[in-house]
């Protein structure tokens, strides 16, 4: 089963390497890994998508926690969360297919970010499954190249109870 794990690490030289080394050293799978700053500059957030049996996933979380630079490890799997991935996809077009490709882009609420006389580049954002779907549809046109960011994810904020009366009054 796929797991999405969010890891807060010290924004320090080598912290990313430590995580990557641990995964390869222990023989754990990585589907995707992304890292970037958080609201606190000294802390980076890594989002790791990995796969394995429950026992292995338990070890993954423990081994991540064991690293000294790791501040917090949250297995988001099964939790209410927001998950997004960004893909840049450059597709070949011919005379008749340009409009089709743009309509695919519109259906998936993407952006056209580049175009020349042969190719068109789309920016698609969404859950990984949506990116997969777009890729599927675009494949017959001929994908020249593609870059995927890997998943980033956050737990959803606590849902505040909305006072229905206030809503009606408005």
């Amino acid at each position: 089963m796929k797991h999405t794990i969010s890891v807060l690490v010290e924004n320090q030289f080598g912290a990313f390497n430590r995580v990557a080394t641990m995964f390869s050293g222990k023989g754990f799978n990585i589907h995707s890994i992304s890292i970037g700053e958080t609201e606190t500059p000294e802390v980076s957030r890594m989002t790791i998508v990995t796969e394995g049996e429950d026992k292995i996933m338990e070890q993954v979380v423990k081994q991540l926690n064991r690293l000294i630079d790791t501040i917090k490890v949250i297995d988001l799997t099964g939790q209410d969360r927001v998950e997004r991935e960004l893909a840049l996809i450059t597709v070949f077009y011919q005379k008749g297919t340009r409009a089709e490709i743009i309509s695919v882009n519109d259906i998936f609420r993407g952006n056209v970010v580049d175009i020349n006389n042969k190719t068109i580049t789309l920016e698609i954002t969404g859950p990984p499954s949506k990116i997969d779907a777009v890729v599927n549809v675009l494949e017959p046109y001929g994908i020249k190249e593609m870059a995927r960011s890997g998943t980033v994810a956050l737990k959803r904020g606590e849902q505040l109870k909305i006072d229905k009366n206030i809503v009606t009054q408005q």
């Binding site: 030289f13 080598g14 390497n17 430590r18 080394t21 641990m22 050293g25 000294i68 630079d69």
Partner: peptide, 16 residues
């Protein structure tokens, strides 16, 4: 050596 010993140390440091 920090890279080499990363998987065999509890932790390591390069003092910059």
């Amino acid at each position: 050596i920090v890279g080499i010993t990363r998987p065999i140390t509890k932790h390591n440091f390069l003092v910059r």
